[in-house]
Design a protein around this nucleic acid. Sequence first.
DNA 1: GCATTCATGGAGTGCGCACTCCAATAATTG
DNA 2: CAATTATTGGAGTGCGCACTCCATGAATGC
Lengths: 198, 198
Amino acid sequence: MARRVDPERHEARRLQIIEAALTVLAERGYEGATTAAICRRAGIGSGTFFHYFATKTELVVAILELGTADTVEKAAALDGRTDPLAVLLELLGSWADDAADPRIPGFVRAVAGVMHLPAVADALAADDRAQRDLLLPWIERGQAAGEIRTDLAPPRVASWLVLLSGGFLERVATDPDFTVAGERALLLTTAESFLRPA
Amino acid sequence: MARRVDPERHEARRLQIIEAALTVLAERGYEGATTAAICRRAGIGSGTFFHYFATKTELVVAILELGTADTVEKAAALDGRTDPLAVLLELLGSWADDAADPRIPGFVRAVAGVMHLPAVADALAADDRAQRDLLLPWIERGQAAGEIRTDLAPPRVASWLVLLSGGFLERVATDPDFTVAGERALLLTTAESFLRPA
DNA sequence: GCATTCATGGAGTGCGCACTCCAATAATTG
DNA sequence: CAATTATTGGAGTGCGCACTCCATGAATGC
């Protein structure tokens, strides 16, 4: 017979394109990140690009899904822990660290700007949901253990932690004086004081 | 001689276009909000549109500047007050209320997605700066009065209040269960507990 | 009333974009 | 090796967009 697709090669090429796209999207936004610019950055032709992604939108969705998977994976590593409050703060901290890659805040903004594309909206909603679902069991355990305030239902606490994380990301993207290194600690103490029972 | 521009008529037409644009931008994002769509919504022809705004970007900037002016104006009304902490919370509350117009969060997202346009970046930076500058004197007075924690320099406190406000706005835009009416009170108590001296 | 300028709609235009097509080559099979 | 199919670059295409042009009418000034 004949040649078959090598899944490893395939995946590697996809990652190479994703890497380039992440950079270009972050620095030029969605509309500024033309497929031509992404191809140039990745060092490939447009034929190759559309061999791996049927659509520019599909590429963006793929990046988002990669991020979601990464989040889930990182959280799975905390499975055996028995100190809910500390786990929650570690999760927050790791999200803050993500913002240290200067491309992340820019990418998030670029993508939020095209939420009206249904595929993007779905992927963003899935990511948001994943974040809150990961927090939820730890919040419940923390409340049961008396480590965390009980005047708010767990989903609401989760929303507020995501609020803090999202606001932090936005601030890092907006204000050059607001750095991850400089503000990370305050994020954690603020979150802790939010979570602690009155 | 001949006819001159009537500044009132002129301004009214601009506002009519801005109103339409705000709606369309919020529901379709920047690239989805074509000038044709905005014209249709405003009930005007494209000739009229470009008679009032040289550029789609210029329109967006005008909207942002209007928002900034509104923010400044609202804050000016608090001039004589002597209770800094309460003033800060009222400012936060009024920003939260802005998010109750469902078009605001969508518009903010749409615009953030085109930050790479220099004119937009400037307008956004000016808005951000305006917000923090308005908070600053109240923070200083609050610290002097012992109402507010003094372990953080005033600009840093301002950044964190804007962080809370921005995160709140984002959450309202993202999560249908997260409403201004339902979460406003928690925003204020959270801010208060952030501000209070330890 | 006449002159001048503003205001307006809409047809038209040029360009930049996402995406298509294909010819050439590389890799894998048996 | 030969057959088959994946992979690649890049020229090309069609379309949708921001923006232009202009002809018509409305408001103002003297």
